[in-house]
Design a binder for these strands. Structure first.
Lengths: 338, 338
DNA sequence: AACGTTCGCGCGAACGTTCGCCTCTATAGT
DNA sequence: ACTATAGAGGCGAACGTTCGCGCGAACGTT
């Protein structure tokens, strides 16, 4: 049984009407000092806690934020989820909201899940993650005018609130770092063209190469999945270029690829950090303990989670948004590998 | 605004009372075939979805499962959370429940958070994780008679529903594997005595050593935190024992310790897998890509999450529990390190 | 023909809040 | 002394469901 002690119980104990108790407890009514005290005492004595479901029903809001994340393969674990979720939960709680996690479905039915949550009144807003170009959820929520915030960007022409890590800045730092270390032939193990995140990061690479006056050869860029296997294969390809064209440094778009590349280097008898620089992206938990420790880029995940909730809450409260999009700068973590 | 279409709207459209619509939609009332059809058509035409908050208020249940997890340090990332959470979310959704994540607070106020969630009627049950001996939450929930299930065990004398990975079985498999490979001096990098999880795992080690007639020297057991640093230091101590007493194999209680031990071995010029066997526990995402790939123990996390929710739901539905505790066997993943 | 019995459906109430409006008294202003 | 004003608190209603009971009609039974 839930809390048996209701407003009426407190009211009876304090000798006032239960509506008065409600108002006093919510600070919406000034009463004489003594009745105020009686009400407070009664609430404390009976250990009253307002039933949130009843409250939500009355005010016709759920104070819930829907969130779902992609099912990672057993291989590619989402090491970011912990930080992202807990920062959102903290921030949401502080604003009187809670998180509602729900299963992530791919495909056409995905929007149905979002619609269902709205129609049944379960959520007041959404945080979207794993967004990409032409995300059907964004189109749906925009046309419905339902509050949401995206962690990540989509089509440039769409105007919606988002939070994102500035991937261009990240690769900017990475590439500049390598250039400063004297590298001139810098290869990159990248993602396919249909990834907005990937394209954004590549922008930082191209920018620095160009402004440093360095050549970018098409054969230095390998595009494929963000897996260990692809990282390894791509690195092998790059290593097998003729000696005078071969990159002396390899930039990757995530740590998993970087580790694959490290294996490839080892297979070719190269010592990572001395014969070949390799830089990752993500700062995965184990990356600091690799041989050699991986130079990589750390994303401000907790800040992103907080910002997502902050932006979403201002929308749900009906306040105007001062800034539609927020870009957070990642941090280059220089270790030994590059 | 939430769903504007209510039971009354459907009823008006179908020409019956709204209570009838409710009952028909819930299958609690048999009506003539034609009115049944009219009601169904109306519901479909208006795209009716019952407001869950109102429903929950009426039936005085929240259909929510409270869950909170320990804040991991940036160093020690919870790579298990993704699988555990998503399996729970899936299973809960199938049973008509949802998960309510809330911030994990250590210390005396922790129970207050649980109490608050109960008193405000927000949750119908809890999944507890990171339980250990003398967990105040267990005491509180047991005496309050509130439904919960623990992922992990606590004091043996307490009788409450739990799901746990059989750590003894895990180290049983590990140790037997090493014995079969001919190892006689097997050291272990363990946790302090106040960890139930750690003690459980050690039981598997002691069992196998004893039944194999192998000696267990106290100096072969190092106890400390589950960190990289402790793993490294403990392994250095063990490596520095006199040659004829030095363990030829090292069992650790998690992969992070194991990686620390691998570094220690490298520092001492030992080749892991040939000169020294090292086995981890957890199968962290990167463990397969280490040099050499780490032999470790994989826990059935998704099964555990499902089972937790299953047990909790049967309690919340008021059904009797057939099995109080469930032990799940982990799986030895043999790679190269040991 | 009078009587139970089932079927099909309606009605009132309740879950625990919040919200707007009303009433009553005491005080101040003219 | 009569009215305006403000302060203190009560009252009814509503949010959208579910649940138990009741009632009329149709049906079959004696």
């Amino acid at each position: 049984m839930p809390s048996k002690v209701t407003l009426k119980a407190v009211a009876a104990h304090a000798g006032v009407s239960y509506q008065t108790v409600s108002k006093v407890l919510n600070g919406q009514l000034r009463v004489s000092a003594e009745t105020h005290q009686r009400i407070m005492d009664a609430a404390k004595a009976l250990d009253y806690h307002p039933n949130q479901i009843a409250r939500n029903m009355r005010v016709r809001r759920s104070f819930m934020i829907g969130y779902s994340w992609v099912q990672t393969s057993p291989d590619q674990v989402n090491h970011i989820l912990d930080q992202f979720l807990s920062s959102m939960v903290h921030e949401a709680e502080a604003a009187g909201y809670h998180l509602l996690p729900f299963p992530f479905r791919e495909g056409d039915e995905q929007v149905d899940d979002y619609k269902e949550l709205i129609d049944t009144g379960r959520v007041d807003g959404f945080v979207l993650s794993s967004v990409n170009y032409n995300d059907p959820r964004i189109e749906f929520l925009m046309q419905r005018g339902f509050p949401f915030v995206a962690f990540g960007r989509s089509n440039p022409e769409l105007d919606f609130p988002f939070v994102d890590v500035d991937g261009a800045d990240g690769l900017h730092q990475v590439t500049r770092h390598l250039v400063e270390r004297g590298h001139k032939r810098i290869g990159v193990i990248a993602w396919p063209h249909d990834s907005r995140v990937g394209n954004e990061r590549m922008r930082g690479y191209f920018d620095v190469m160009q402004s440093a006056g360095l050549e970018v050869r098409p054969e230095w860029i390998e595009r494929g999945q963000g897996t260990f296997e692809f990282g390894r294969e791509a690195a092998l390809c790059l290593m097998d270029l003729p000696a005078e064209q071969r990159p002396t440094a390899l930039v990757t778009l995530n740590d998993t690829q970087a580790i694959g590349a490290m294996h490839a280097a080892r297979e070719r008898g190269l010592e990572v950090g001395r014969d070949l620089a390799i830089v990752g992206f993500d700062d995965a938990p184990m990356s600091q303990y690799l041989f050699p420790p991986l130079t990589t880029v750390r994303q401000p995940i907790r800040a992103a989670g907080r910002k997502c909730v902050e932006i979403l809450v201002t929308q749900m409260e009906g306040k105007p948004l001062v800034e539609k999009g927020t870009l957070l700068s990642p941090e280059l973590i220089i270790r030994v590998s590059g």
